[in-house]
Simulated scan of single mutants.
Amino acid sequence: MSVKYDFLIVGTGLYGAVFAHQANEAGKTCLIIDKRSHIAGNIYTEKVEDIHVHRYGAHIFHTANQEVWKFVNRFADFNRYTNSPLANYDGEIYNLPFNMNTFNKLWGVTTPDEAKKIIEQQREKSYVENPQNLEEQAISLVGNEIYEKLIRGYTEKQWGRPCTELPAFIIRRLPVRFTYDNNYFDDPYQGIPVGGYTAMVERMIDGIEVKLDTDYLENKTYWDSLADKVVYTGPVDAYFDYCFGVLEYRSLRFETEVLNTDNYQGNAVVNFTDRETPYTRIIEHKHFDFGNQDKTIITREYSVEWKLGDEPYYPINDEKNNAQYERYKTLAEQENSVIFGGRLGEYKYYNMDKIVETALRKAAEVLSSQ
């Protein structure tokens, strides 16, 4: 390969795909490589039994940014899916986020004033002026009953440790709504691409050369030599060979199965908030697309400890890891020919719309200077 490209994009996830599209549209030559055997990163969807399966967990696109919404709609039609997850606590079903339907199920109340009064009474009983851990923080916000049934078990499974050992900052605020509205997001634009996310990304990078099953870091010098600039969306600590140590993450494990029934749980996402159920949630993929297939596909999602070599999902942005990342960020800023972007490149959890927004902004900044 003696071709010289303007940009080498490492990763076919949303950040890399958006940047590549913008560069290609501006007349720049691009090569995209990815160590996985498929495009689209963690938003990859594959068709099984005529159902679009979200292989790496549920992804619902939502945004308040009209520019971002217009951009993604260039590559897909979005359905009207509204994220309305349920919580299953020992067989009892509650609506999320906490709203009047939740409070009616918990206490039989029917008005916002009644619900507010009960929450305030419970908060007062356990209020802590300066919460020292997540448990004290959560109870101080919403009281003991909501905490025990809908927060504690799920959170302890998610983080792999007791809430009394988790820092208070993880849960500084909790969404509490005194309306009968089960929509999890407040954003005006929401939905899932008809045909799945993979098809959306395919259209985004149409006409751009892509190489899969290719690990950039295994032959970094060679790949760098092919392009004037590199857009790197992999782990920032791996790029610098972990010189300041390994940044920490939580990971996920998925168990997916096809069932000979047309409807398993009646909702796309059900969180299991008791501590005894080992998985955090069950995703029933057909409900993202209002499917009427004879079969259904479910995925049980487990939050697991992460170790180097596992798939990193959620950055652990505590004081220790953030301080470590700042040292890597200083090194990254000195790499004049490399752009670090995305969840792994910036060691930051991003919603999908924010990934698109930051990639568009960075592409505009870089391309305007050329």
Rank of each mutant, 00 (worst) to 15 (best):
K4R: 13
Y5H: 11
F7N: 01
L14M: 15
A17V: 12
A17G: 11
V18H: 02
Q22L: 15
E25H: 13
A26F: 07
L31N: 05
L31T: 00
I32F: 03
K35R: 14
K35G: 07
S37N: 15
I39N: 00
I39Y: 02
G41E: 04
I43S: 09
I43R: 05
T45W: 01
E46F: 11
K47I: 14
K47S: 11
E49I: 02
H52F: 13
V53E: 01
H54C: 00
G57H: 09
I60T: 09
F61Y: 07
T63F: 08
N65H: 10
N65K: 12
V68M: 12
F75P: 03
T82N: 08
P85A: 14
A87C: 07
G91M: 08
G91V: 01
I93E: 15
K105T: 14
K105Y: 02
L106P: 01
T110Q: 12
T110E: 14
P112W: 08
D113W: 09
K116F: 04
I118S: 06
E124C: 09
P131H: 03
N133E: 08
E135D: 12
E136R: 06
E136T: 05
I139Q: 12
L141G: 05
E148Q: 14
G160N: 09
G160R: 04
I170R: 13
L174D: 00
P175M: 04
F178N: 03
T179A: 12
D181V: 01
N182D: 15
Y184G: 07
F185Q: 10
P188G: 11
I192D: 00
T198W: 00
M200L: 15
D206F: 11
D206C: 10
G207W: 09
V210W: 11
K211V: 02
L212K: 07
L212G: 05
L212R: 03
D213P: 01
D215K: 09
L217E: 05
W223S: 00
A227V: 03
V231H: 02
Y232R: 04
D237T: 03
Y239T: 00
C243H: 10
F244H: 15
V246Q: 06
E248Q: 15
R250I: 00
T256A: 09
L259Y: 10
Q265L: 12
V270G: 06
R275A: 15
E276R: 15
T277A: 08
Y279I: 06
T280H: 03
I283D: 00
D294N: 14
K295D: 13
K295A: 07
I297M: 02
R300K: 15
R300S: 07
E301K: 11
S303F: 12
S303Q: 07
L308H: 07
E311I: 13
Y314S: 07
P315M: 01
I316P: 06
E319T: 10
R327G: 07
Y328F: 10
Y328N: 05
N336C: 07
I339L: 15
G342E: 02
Y349N: 05
Y350Q: 08
N351M: 06
N351H: 13
V356C: 05
T358Q: 10
L367E: 03
S369I: 06
